[in-house]
Design a protein around this nucleic acid. Structure first.
Length: 463
RNA sequence: GGCGCGAUAGCAAAGCGGUUAUGCACUGGAUUGCAAAUCCACGUAGCCCGGUUCGACUCCGGGUCGCGCCUCCA
């Protein structure tokens, strides 16, 4: 069995070959911190979280780096609007981002470099690019990358440099030699935020940050570079141009991009303003429900965000958690210890470019088998298997009752529910079925579903 | 205009040249005091038009529609 990964560079699913046996170095473009993270960010966070969890579960030594862009035009603009120092703004939103990640159960990256902590690396790389003729200091104090000096420019996104030149949307700037050139270093006035450099006070351009930080953390050439759907051009294309020109070697071996999250058919984005923030959605839905929505489709497919999807996702998770009731004490084991057919299918699906949809299908089949075998040793071992696979996807780690009874808002209190259930149990013992049904009806109206079983009456909230 | 992606049953969503995806919803049955959960049964899905093939949802060509990137954006 071998790991296959779709690379944007070749537009093909490829067999993964690491630079170093057993090790994977991965860099993912993180977030520009001037606002709350939205569901589009959650998709990238969760996608690479699941990828990392799975690879580690398969024994790979994964070094996962995800940067934070903490200096940029929008950050400065927003801080100015708020009348605060930009570092106050960024540190606040970095905290919020970490809160959101924790809430979603996203495993922390191995390293989380921030642009402002790597100005030295950036300045050095800009210097190297100038020295090699790939960049130039312009009359306005900016330093630009000379796109014409990099013959392979456009190879990631299949752009023809000539078309770019003719493109109407490329900003024409007097100081540039060529409209395609992009800023590596942006001039700053004395009163503005900036750092000293051989070209005067300034701040880094967006693209050079990632080239410099990835090199610092992972070296000039590493295995996987990932990011969101809007990053291949120009960001990743520019990273390749910078890094390969400066380092003289291939930059990343595999390029992975998550699919977009849409809202009413349009891409969710900060610039369009059509986004739902992670914390907003988590007020109403369990974090695993959000993850499940994201996992239900392949990580590269576009998905539509809607309340209906969330509700359906919760229903799907209810099936898992209903099956897991009674197996609360089951301990998750190492993925490699599982030997059933379902986990074999799960692993095969995940090895095939992280096909979470097929992986979930295998888990659902395991649920059916568990329900059929309930109470037996086989069921016990299936529960272990399901929870273990769930852990790789970052779901099914809650206590079943906690998930099924989670109160999303102003629902009836658990204490009141249990009091009514106790009364109903007595009514049933007294064969007073009229009263028992009355209580059930009352609870049903309140969105509480009862389930009588040999072990007593269980309840859950309706989704 | 350039580059790229997609179109699957009521909804969501995968794989696959011929054999059940899966989940949600629906219907019937079993079970239940009644329910719920669960199990069993049930869907002749694959945008349109051609072609290749013994056989295509799956490959090829054309078309239609939708979407993304080409400007900051995950």
């Amino acid at each position: 069995m071998s790991l296959k990964i779709y690379s944007t560079l070749t537009r093909n699913k490829e067999e993964f070959k690491p630079n170093q046996a057993g090790k994977i170095s991965m860099y993912v473009c993180g977030i520009t911190v001037y606002d709350y993270c939205h569901i589009g960010h959650a998709r990238v966070l969760v996608a690479f979280d699941v990828i990392t969890r799975f690879l580690r579960a398969r024994g790979w030594d994964v070094h996962y780096v995800r940067n934070i862009t903490d200096i940029d035009d929008k950050i400065i603009k927003r801080a100015d609007e708020n009348g605060e120092d930009y570092t106050d703004l960024t540190s606040r939103f970095i905290d919020f981002m970490h809160e959101d990640e924790r809430a979603l159960g996203v495993v922390q990256p191995s390293q989380e470099p921030r642009a402002t902590a790597h100005i030295k690396d950036i300045v050095q790389m800009v210097g190297e690019l100038i020295a090699k003729g790939h960049a130039y200091a312009a009359s306005n104090g900016d330093v630009y990358y000379r796109v014409s000096s990099f013959a392979e420019y456009g190879k990631l996104t299949n752009k023809n440099p000539e078309d770019l030149l003719a493109g109407a949307r490329v900003e024409v700037d007097e100081a540039k030699e060529d409209p395609r050139d992009f800023a590596l270093w942006k001039h700053a006035e004395d009163r503005e935020v900036g750092w000293p450099s051989p070209w005067g006070k300034g701040r880094p351009g967006w693209h050079i940050e990632c080239s410099a930080m990835s090199k610092h953390c992972l070296g000039a050439n590493f295995d996987i570079h990932g990011g969101g759907p809007d990053l291949p051009f120009p960001h990743h294309e520019n990273e390749i141009a910078q890094s390969e020109a400066a380092n003289g070697c291939t930059y990343a071996n595999y390029w992975m991009h998550a699919g977009a999250v849409r809202l009413d058919g349009e891409k969710m984005s900060k610039s369009l303003g059509n986004f739902f923030t992670i914390r907003e959605v988590l007020k109403k839905y369990h974090p695993e429900t959000v993850r499940y929505v994201l996992l239900g489709s392949h990580y590269r497919s576009p998905i539509n965000y809607s309340e209906d999807n969330l509700i359906e996702a919760r229903s799907g998770l209810e099936r898992f958690y209903s099956a897991l009731r009674g197996y609360e004490n089951v301990e998750v084991v190492a993925l490699a210890e599982l030997s059933d057919d379902y986990s074999a299918r799960f692993i095969a699906a995940m090895e095939d470019d992280f096909n979470t949809s097929v992986a979930l299908a295998a888990m659902f089949d395991a649920v059916r088998a568990l329900n059929t075998a309930k109470g037996t040793a086989e069921a016990q071992s299936l529960a272990v298997s399901i929870k273990t696979m769930g852990q790789v996807l970052g779901i099914l780690q809650d206590v079943p009752d906690a998930f099924l009874q989670a109160d999303s808002g102003e629902g009836m209190q658990a204490r009141d529910i249990e009091a009514l259930i106790a009364e109903r149990v007595q009514a049933k013992l007294d064969k007073n079925f009229a009263r028992a049904d009355e209580i059930r009806a009352q609870l049903t109206d309140a969105g509480i579903m009862l389930e009588d079983s040999a072990e007593g009456t269980k309840w859950r909230r309706e989704s």
